[in-house]
Design a protein around this nucleic acid. Structure first.
Length: 652
RNA sequence: GCCCCGGUAGCUCAGCCGGAUAGAGCAGCCGCCUCCUAAGCGGCAGGUCGGAGGUUCGAAUCCUCUCUGGGGCGCCA
């Protein structure tokens, strides 16, 4: 039982007597860790709102509460301060006995939740056959961490990688294979050749697309220009009209900047293609490539033997390709049920929607109209093809019925917010009202310039290159810091530190905000980084190594805890907050709360390391106590990092 | 036009279902290795929490308006 929960339980009894029953929970929520040491360890802020509700002075309420709550075995000082804050200081004996419990427990005293849920975590979900890029890493890393934390707290977790394995990109590869394959290259390395084919077809399609789009884009730009000239030339007398004119001009100019950029981009695409004569002859020979690609996709979906055969042939290579990345990131999934898994269920989904009269036909498409949205959710196109909302609905059905999911978490970037709002509304209309459906959204990864992270050439940055760079930078530091270590150890440190830094950079940020990617910040040796935590952990192990003890040997024969320096008590309290923080993480699915916690823990340990000699402790008993704190610290850091999907080492 | 998400120290960001003097890291300045990993520790300096109203005993946090940046908005995913 963590301290916060213990305190809340005691207050719950007392509050039941004086507060309205439905208010008790929110009042208990006002008991929280104290913001400042001088206010004790925890503070209860519920007397002020209670005073208002009951029409009595809050200080009286606070005093009454203090008298009514039985905390004798838990807290020392219980003080009423200011307008009615109740400041609580935990008894040292209570802290010490919790530490002793944690020391002998593999889960560090963290208890399983009382009501485990079946939680499906849908994350990563890349389109196979397209190169994975930096945008995929946030979903992958955040989803993995949330799954691990759920599991650690006793929930039944199912992770599912909902691959895009049935879309247009296969039409592209199939078309590419049929027309452009280099058989020697394919035999030598199918993955590389398929990747090349995808890009090749993409470039040709983009070229034709740009050629088709450019005149209209140019025309629109000209129109905007004309409009700007016209509006600018207008003469107005009254202020309101003048203001409107100014606003219109500003808006038009803004639009023109965007439109100009679009035109330039199209021109660049065309010029880029034209500079490659080989490509141009292919482009000329395949003028209808977009239509043909679509046709190949349709044939695949309709079960065409040849295309389905190619799909069956290509898919394992595509999977092997992405699995190489998952291996490097050390990430596994319980299931990999991509879009293709659901394709034969889609017709039935749409039929069911029609039969239940929650979908209607509009302009030949089958639509679900939802309150609060102008645009409907289309589940079948005019041409009879299904769309991703259809697949997503089938997926919800499957997860609810096959897996009895109590919660489905979708770790997907924030741009799909509207899609998920609609999807969830539609699913509830359909009858899936029980399960929690949550879009765990996250922001965009930006470059130094504040724009979506791209290479100088304008391509999205490949994930593979990102991992390479992170590792090689970390390796350089590892060699510099540990010149005496053998090379394989340095390599190992480089790998663990580099990958850890990359993951932590994503996790430590509030997931909802965009974040600026920077190798330098990520691999900084100080500050709130994985490296700092790994370093702290390595230092703990250094102490234990020097004194020839292990967490296991300490566990075998525990001793008393002694708080000589203030930092020892602070460190202890922080160690005991682990469970509390893990529960906090799951309230809003925010792994950064765990990062913050671990960073605070590491900082406290660094102070402990400075102020509390272990080898040269004053007594055997004190040394024992400090070693036990070391064991708990390394256990918590290692476990905490592990829950974030980050490895730790005993020496870095 | 409508909808969503941001704006907090020079920079990168925490804090946001209201709580006591707004935090951290980086960058800057000053100290600390005869001492368990200095990939460290201590200290100094730095903020009208975009702006204006409002609700409240109390607002970075809630409400309204406004400025500003980003994203999304019928047959792509």
């Amino acid at each position: 039982m963590n301290a916060l929960e213990a305190i809340r339980n005691r207050f719950a009894v007392a509050l039941a007597d004086i507060a309205e029953p439905d208010k008790v929970d929110s009042l208990l929520g006002m008991i929280r860790p104290a913001q400042d040491d001088k206010f004790g360890d925890y503070q209860a802020n519920c007397a002020m709102p209670l005073g208002k509700q009951l029409g009595r002075p809050p200080r009286d309420i606070a005093t009454g509460l203090v008298a009514a709550v039985s905390l004798d075995d838990l807290c020392d000082a219980v003080e009423v301060a200011g307008p009615g804050f109740i400041n609580l200081t935990l008894k040292e004996d209570w802290i010490k006995s919790r530490l002793t419990e944690a020391l002998s427990d593999d889960a560090l005293g963290v208890q399983k939740v009382e009501k485990p849920r079946n939680v499906v975590v849908d994350f990563s979900s890349p389109n196979v056959a397209k190169p994975m890029h930096v945008g995929h890493i946030r979903s992958t890393v955040i989803g993995d961490a949330l799954a691990k934390i759920h599991r650690f707290l006793g929930h039944r977790v199912i992770t599912d990688n909902h691959l895009g394995d049935w879309g247009t990109q296969f039409g592209m590869i199939i078309y590419g294979y049929k027309h452009f394959v280099d058989n020697a290259a394919y035999t030598a390395d199918p993955v590389v050749e398929l990747g090349r084919l995808y890009k090749y077809v993409r470039v040709i399609m983009d070229y034709h697309g740009a050629v088709a789009q450019l005149p209209a884009a140019q025309e629109l730009l000209d129109k905007q220009h004309t409009a700007l000239t016209r509006v600018s030339g207008e003469q107005h007398e009254d202020k309101a009209a003048l203001k409107k004119q100014k606003k219109d001009i500003a808006r038009l100019k803004e639009k023109m900047v965007d439109q100009q950029a679009l035109v330039e981009k199209l021109q660049q695409t065309i010029a880029g293609a034209q500079s490659d004569t080989g490509l141009m002859s292919a482009a000329d020979a395949h003028a209808d490539i977009a239509k043909s690609v679509l046709a190949e996709t349709v044939k695949l979906h309709e079960g065409d033997t040849e295309n389905k055969g190619l799909w069956d042939k290509f898919l394992p290579y595509c999977l092997a390709d992405i699995n190489r990345l998952y291996d490097r990131l050390n990430i596994r999934f319980d299931h990999v049920l991509g879009e293709s898994f659901y394709h034969d269920q889609l017709a039935a989904v749409v039929e069911d929607f029609i039969q239940r009269k929650i979908a209607t036909e509009s302009d030949g498409a089958i639509c679900v109209f939802l309150d609060g949205y102008d645009a409907p959710m289309i589940i079948r196109k005019q041409d009879g093809a299904y769309l991703y909302p259809t697949t997503d609905l089938a997926t919800i059905q499957y997860r609810a019925e096959e897996w009895q999911a109590d919660a489905m978490l979708y770790v997907v970037d924030h741009r799909q917010h509207d899609h998920f709002d609609k999807l969830f509304d539609a699913a509830r209309l359909w009858g899936y009202k029980e399960a929690e459906l949550t879009h765990v959204s996250f922001g965009t990864v930006l470059g130094d310039d504040g724009k979506p992270f791209k290479t100088r050439a304008g391509d999205t940055v490949g994930l593979e290159g990102l991992l390479d760079e992170a590792e090689s930078r970390a390796l350089a530091i590892a060699i510099e810091q540990n010149p005496e270590l053998e090379e394989s150890r340095q390599q190992e440190i480089g790998r663990v530190v580099g990958i850890g830094a990359l993951k932590y950079a994503d996790l430590s940020q509030n997931r909802s905000s965009d974040y600026k990617f920077s190798y330098d910040k990520m691999l900084a040796l100080r500050g709130n980084t994985a490296t700092y935590l790994q370093y702290a952990n390595a230092r703990v192990h250094g102490i234990m190594r020097n004194l020839n003890v292990t967490p296991a040997s300490l566990k075998a024969q525990t001793g008393d805890f002694i708080f000589a320096e203030p930092v020892e008590r602070q460190l202890s309290l922080q160690l005991l907050r682990f469970e509390e923080v893990l529960n906090d993480v799951l309230v809003e699915y925010k792994p950064n709360l765990l990062c913050n916690y671990l960073f605070d823990l590491a900082q406290l340990f660094a102070r402990f390391f400075d102020q509390c000699p272990v080898r040269d402790a004053d007594s055997q008993a004190q040394q024992k106590s400090r070693l036990q704190l070391c064991a708990l610290t390394s256990g918590t850091l290692t476990t905490g990092l592990g829950l974030l999907g980050i490895e730790s080492l005993e020496r870095i």
